[in-house]
Computed example of a mutant assay.
Amino acid sequence: MHVSYINLLAAAICRSGSWRSIGIRATSYRGLCNSPDSFEKISTIIRDKCENVVVMAGAGLSTPSGIPDFRSPKTGLYHNLQKYKLPYPEAIFDVQYFIDNPMPFITLAQELYPGEKYRPNLGHYFVRLLHEKGKLLRMYTQNIDGLERLSGIPGEKLIEAHGSFSTASCIVCGDKHDPEAVKKTILAGKVHLCSCKGYVKPDIVFFGEQLPGKFWLHNLDAIAADLLIVLGTSLEVHPFASICDAVPYRTPRILINREVVGSLGLRDLDHVLVGDIIENINKLAQEMGWLDDLIALQKDNENA
Rank of each mutant, 00 (worst) to 15 (best):
E209G: 01
S234F: 09
P102Q: 02
G289L: 10
I171T: 10
T63Y: 10
P114K: 02
N7H: 10
N257F: 02
I24R: 12
V127E: 08
L231S: 06
E302Y: 09
N282D: 14
L77R: 00
C173Q: 07
D175K: 15
F93I: 04
L217H: 14
W290G: 07
E116Q: 14
G66E: 11
G163A: 05
H2G: 08
T44Q: 14
V182E: 06
P202I: 00
T27Q: 15
K117E: 03
E279P: 01
L235N: 04
G152L: 13
A59H: 06
K214F: 02
L137I: 09
Q286S: 12
V3G: 04
L235R: 07
L32R: 09
P73F: 08
Y113E: 04
E287S: 12
P114Y: 03
G123V: 05
L227G: 06
S234V: 04
L108Q: 01
Y199T: 00
A304M: 12
L147K: 08
E236S: 12
Q82Y: 00
Y199P: 00
G134M: 08
V3F: 10
Y78V: 05
D221S: 08
P154G: 08
L108R: 00
G123D: 11
R253Q: 13
A91V: 00
Y88Q: 09
V95I: 14
G275I: 08
R25W: 01
A241H: 06
I229L: 12
L228H: 10
H162E: 07
P68Y: 01
H79G: 00
C194W: 04
D100W: 03
F207T: 03
V237K: 04
A222H: 03
I229E: 11
L266K: 10
G289D: 09
R25V: 10
V205A: 05
S65L: 08
R15V: 11
P89Y: 05
G189A: 03
R119M: 12
N280S: 12
L269F: 14
Y88C: 03
A241Q: 09
L130E: 07
S234W: 08
L32K: 15
K133R: 15
S38V: 04
A12F: 04
C33H: 13
L32W: 08
S18Y: 11
N121H: 10
D276K: 12
F240D: 09
Y140Q: 12
K201T: 00
V3S: 10
L294T: 00
I153G: 05
D100A: 07
P36K: 13
E90Q: 15
V230R: 08
F39A: 09
A225W: 12
I159T: 15
F165Q: 03
E132R: 13
I278N: 14
K85G: 00
K184C: 03
K183W: 00
H218A: 02
R258L: 14
C14M: 12
W216F: 15
N52C: 06
P102D: 02
D100N: 13
E236V: 05
L9C: 06
I92D: 01
K197H: 11
Y199N: 13
I254N: 05
D276T: 03
N52F: 11
V127M: 09
D145V: 02
L108S: 01
Y113V: 10
M1K: 11
T107G: 00
E160Y: 07
T167K: 15
G23P: 10
L32C: 06
L284N: 05
E116W: 04
D226S: 08
E111S: 03
E209P: 05
D270A: 07
N280V: 06
A246H: 12
K117F: 06
D293G: 02
I243F: 09
I281D: 06
